[in-house]
């Protein structure tokens, strides 16, 4: 008797879980819409430059001669360079690499980010993996981000990905480091406030513009490098780039940003 109702029970539980992801997304949108009522919630894809007019003016000037431009051009050349077996990135990624809006995705029981997918493609075709912080990886992902500009984030969180999504969410809300801060403390609780010369940006839209050229780094870097830096700033030991917790955090932040416009690569202070 009970067995007969198992599929129904499964369907109810599954729709409830998917609804949770959508509810999280709605809650984030509502939170920032209320917190910054004069700014369209979609404007947060520009991070701090959506909040501070003076900084925005400086940033727009910087974007006239984008410092990531060389990285995009070099990335395009690398993308078109055939692998030793004659294949290339085009055999792994459709639409000339305009696929960033579909990443991270959940495959083979793990979160696959754009960087991981690039390496999977290389290994599949007999090439060596690239280091996640290598110049070549940043160039390739800069090109892919550029090719994907103006696409709307459209990632899925299937039923079997929910534990990974939940762990990403837990990471986001958990206090860490000697300063005892969570991501949510800076980017929700005191969002828009000033920490020394910096204004704290909204989490909604944090994932839309990577990789990013940061003046502080003097080069293009990845979202995970920024995660590591944030962790360090609160006195927590940074985790390796593309480690499972960082991938799951990216998965959570991208899932709640579904429907936002991709605008990478970008420049930031």
């Amino acid at each position: 008797m009970f067995v007969r109702f198992l599929p129904v029970l499964f369907m109810i539980l599954s729709s409830a879980s998917m609804a949770d992801v959508e509810a999280d997304r709605e809650a984030f949108r509502a939170f920032y819409a209320k917190r910054f009522s004069s700014i369209p919630v979609e404007a947060h894809v520009d991070g701090v430059y959506a909040l501070d007019e003076a900084k925005r003016a400086q940033w727009l000037e910087m974007e006239e001669f984008p410092p990531y431009e060389f990285s995009v051009d070099d990335g395009e050349a690398l993308y078109d360079e055939p692998f030793t077996d004659g294949s290339g990135y085009g055999d792994c990624f459709a639409d000339g690499g305009a696929v960033k809006h579909l990443y991270p995705r959940f495959e083979g029981g793990e979160v696959v980010t754009m960087e991981v997918a690039v390496n999977q493609c290389r290994v599949q075709h007999g090439m060596e993996s690239l280091a996640y912080d290598s110049e070549e990886m940043m160039q390739l992902t800069s090109y892919i981000a550029y090719a994907s500009r103006d696409q709307l984030i459209d990632i899925k969180v299937p039923e079997d990905a929910l534990p990974a999504y939940e762990r990403g969410k837990q990471f986001y809300y958990s206090r860490r480091g000697q300063l005892n801060f969570s991501c949510s403390h800076c980017h929700m609780q005191i969002v828009g406030s000033q920490l020394r010369a910096e204004v704290l940006s909204a989490s909604y839209g944090h994932v839309t513009h990577w990789p990013t050229y940061r003046l502080k780094w003097q080069e293009v870097g990845s979202l995970h490098r920024r995660f590591a830096e944030c962790n360090g700033q609160v006195g927590a030991e940074a985790l390796p780039l593309q480690s499972q917790p960082y991938r799951e955090l990216e998965y959570f932040l991208t899932a709640i940003a579904r429907g936002l416009l991709l605008n990478g690569p970008a420049s930031r202070k």
Binding site: E26, A27, F28, A30, Q170, S174, R176, Q178, M188
Partner: peptide, 24 residues
């Protein structure tokens, strides 16, 4: 002292993170 505190933080956060999550 610091290592013990970091482990305590990990234990406490296993539950308390939920109090911070947004609900609509």
């Amino acid at each position: 002292f610091l290592a013990e505190a970091s482990l305590k933080q990990a234990d406490v956060e296993q539950k308390t993170w939920k109090q911070r999550q947004l609900v609509k």
